[in-house]
Design a protein around this nucleic acid. Sequence first.
DNA 1: GATGAATGAGACTTCATTCAT
DNA 2: TATGAATGAAGTCTCATTCAT
Lengths: 198, 198, 198, 198
Amino acid sequence: MAREKGAKGRESRLRLLHAAAKQFAIHGFHETKVSSIVAEAKLSQPAFYLYFESKDAVFEELVKLFHVRLTTVINESRLPEINSTDGVLNQLCHTLTLMFDYFYANPYLTRIGFHLAPQSQNMKQELVQWVEQMLSGEQRSGQFKSDFRMNMVAECLVGTIERIVFTQLLPGKVAPEQLALDIVNLYVSGIGMKQSKV
Amino acid sequence: MAREKGAKGRESRLRLLHAAAKQFAIHGFHETKVSSIVAEAKLSQPAFYLYFESKDAVFEELVKLFHVRLTTVINESRLPEINSTDGVLNQLCHTLTLMFDYFYANPYLTRIGFHLAPQSQNMKQELVQWVEQMLSGEQRSGQFKSDFRMNMVAECLVGTIERIVFTQLLPGKVAPEQLALDIVNLYVSGIGMKQSKV
Amino acid sequence: MAREKGAKGRESRLRLLHAAAKQFAIHGFHETKVSSIVAEAKLSQPAFYLYFESKDAVFEELVKLFHVRLTTVINESRLPEINSTDGVLNQLCHTLTLMFDYFYANPYLTRIGFHLAPQSQNMKQELVQWVEQMLSGEQRSGQFKSDFRMNMVAECLVGTIERIVFTQLLPGKVAPEQLALDIVNLYVSGIGMKQSKV
Amino acid sequence: MAREKGAKGRESRLRLLHAAAKQFAIHGFHETKVSSIVAEAKLSQPAFYLYFESKDAVFEELVKLFHVRLTTVINESRLPEINSTDGVLNQLCHTLTLMFDYFYANPYLTRIGFHLAPQSQNMKQELVQWVEQMLSGEQRSGQFKSDFRMNMVAECLVGTIERIVFTQLLPGKVAPEQLALDIVNLYVSGIGMKQSKV
DNA sequence: GATGAATGAGACTTCATTCAT
DNA sequence: TATGAATGAAGTCTCATTCAT
C-alpha cells in the first residue's frame, strides 16, 4: 500500500473536524448533535470519541485553530516598518485585507471562533488592543486627532469589522480588499464634507 | 383584602419573566433550564407552565418585548423636522442616546433581543435601513461625501453600535449620551487630521 | 329566595356529572382531563373536588349509576308470567326494547357503563346469565333445540346487543323496538330457509 | 462470531415489540408506561427509542401488524368456489375457524387490534361488509330469507364474534373450530324448534 | 480502525390535586 | 359556594457517551 500508516485515521479525524465546523457554524453549539457530525462525516458515533474527548473538546479545538491561525495571519502581516501616517494606515489596511482573506477562506471556522465561542470576546479584545496600539502611536505623533480616545475608536472599528465580516464578506457581497479599504477610509475621514462637529 | 383580584398571578408572571430574562441573558437559551428560572422566581416548575406555553414561548415573548419597545423608542425619538445637516446629525445623536438609554435600563432584554435571538439579525437589519435612509437623504442633498455607499456606512455604524453597547454601555463604562456623541463624531469626521485618503 | 337551601350546590354537582359523562363518553377516561370537565361545567377545578373525591370517583359514580338504572329497567320489565315459548320471546323482546330505550336516552352513560368501564364486563356477564336462565328454562321445556349450549347462545346474543347498540341504536339508525324485534327474530329462526345444518 | 450482523438489534426490537404487545393488551395504552415495556424487555428506556419513534408509534405498529395479518388470513381462507348455500356456509365457517386460529395464536395482538385500537372499529366495519357481501349473494339466489337486512345480520354476527373471541376463545374455553361451527349454526337455524316468529 | 448496541442523566411538560381566600 | 394560584409526582423523550466486538 502506498499510503503511510496512520493516514486513514488522520483522514477520518479531519473529516470529523470539518463536519463539526460546518454543523457548529450553521446550527450553533447546542443545536449540533454529535450524531449529525458523524453523519456528515460518514462515520459512527464511537469513531467520534476515538478522535475527540467530547463534543466540547472539538469545539474547543476549532476555536483554538481559528485563534492560532488568525494570530499568525496578523503577525505575518507586518509590513516593513514605515514610520508615517500613511504607513500606519497602509499597515491597517493590509492587515485587514489579510484577515478578511482568511475569514473568507474559512467561513465556518470564522463563525465559530469570531462569533459563537465565548472566547471570541477575548479575541476581539486582543484585536481592539492591537488596533489601539497602532492608532495611539500615530496619535502621539500628532497625526490623529487627540480628542478621540483611541480605545474607543478601536472598539468601534472592531464592532464594524465583526458586522461587516458576517453581512458583507462571508456572503460574498464585497471583496476582502475593497472592504478593508472602505472601512479604513471611513474611519479616517468620516462621511462629512467638512470638519463638521455635532 | 387590599389587593385587587388577579394581582398575585400577574406578579408571579412578572417574576418569572424577569427571572427568565436574567437567566437567558447570562447563560443563553440552552444553558438556561426552566428549573433555574422557577428557582429564581421562587416558584415551582408547573407554575411556569401556568403562565407560559413553553420555554421557547418565554424567550419569544422577551424578544418581542425588546423589539416593540425599541421600535417605540426609535419612533418617538423623532425631533421637530430641521432640514439641515446638523439636523440629521442631531437627530441621529438624539436617537442613539435614547436607544442607549433604553439598552442601559434593560440590559438583560438587550442581550437577549440584540444578541441572542436569531431575530436580532432582522432587527439590526431594520436599524441599518433606518440609518441608511437618514444618511442617504443628506447625501443626495450634498452634505455627505458621495463616494461612500451609505448602506455600507450604515452597516459599519450598526456593527459599531452593537459592540459598543456590550463593551462600553452595559458595563457602565461610558454614559449613553457620551457614547452617542462619540460615535456620531467619529463617523462624521473620522480620526484623521486632514482629509487623508489611503 | 324561592329556591331551597342547597339547591345551587346540587345543580353544580349535576352539571359536573353531566359534563364528566359527556367528556368520558367522547374522549375516554384518560383523555378526559378534570380541566375539561370543569370547563364544560363552567366551574373551577376546586369546585370539582367540592363534589367529588377524585376523577376516578366520578367515573365510578357514573358507572354505578348506569348499572343501577339498567338493573332497574331490566327488573321492572318483567311481564305478567305467561308460561309459553311465545311468552319467553315476548319477554325477551320487551326487555330488550326497554333496555334499548334506556340506552338511547342515555348515550353517554351507556358508552361509559357498557363499554369503557372495566366493570362493564361484569354487567355483561350478568346479562349473559339472565338471558341464559330465560332460554334454559324454555329449553328444558322442550321448546328450544337441545343441541345448543344456552350459555353460548347467551354470550352470542350479548355480543350482538353490544355491537348493535353502538352501531345502530346510538347513532339513531334503527328504532329501539325494531332492533329488539330483529335480534330476537334472528336468534330464534336464523337466516336459513330450511333447517339447514353445516 | 456465529451470529449474523444486526441480529442482536433485531432481537431487541422484537423483545420490545412483544413486551409492548403484552403490556398494552393487559393494561391498555395509557396505563402502559414505556418504563414497564423496557423492564419487561430487559432494556433501558433509551433503547426503546432506538427502535421506535414513540410510544404511540409502537402501538400503531402493533395495530397495523394485526390488521395486515388478519387481512391475509381472511384473503387466504378462500375455498375453491362452490356455488351453493352449503358452499357459502362452509366458506364462512372455514374463514371463521382460521380467524379464530389466528386470534388464539395471538391473544395480545388481538386484544390490541380488535379491541383497544380506535381503528379496530374500521376493521370490524370491514368485516361486516365482507360478511354482508357473502350473505347478500346467497340471499339474492333465494337460499336465505329475504326479510332480513343482511347488513343487520352481519353487524349482529360481528358483535357475536367480538364477544365470543374474548370470553370463549382467548380464555381457551372452546376450540376455534367448534366456535366457528356453533356460531354459524346458530345464525343459520336459530334456536327455535320450528319456524317461530315473534 | 471502526461500529452496532446500549445506557445514565437529565430536560421539558402534564395533570390530578390542594391551599388560602 | 366558589376560585385564583400553586405544586408533587410522574411520564415521555433526548443526547452525550461507552461497552463489546
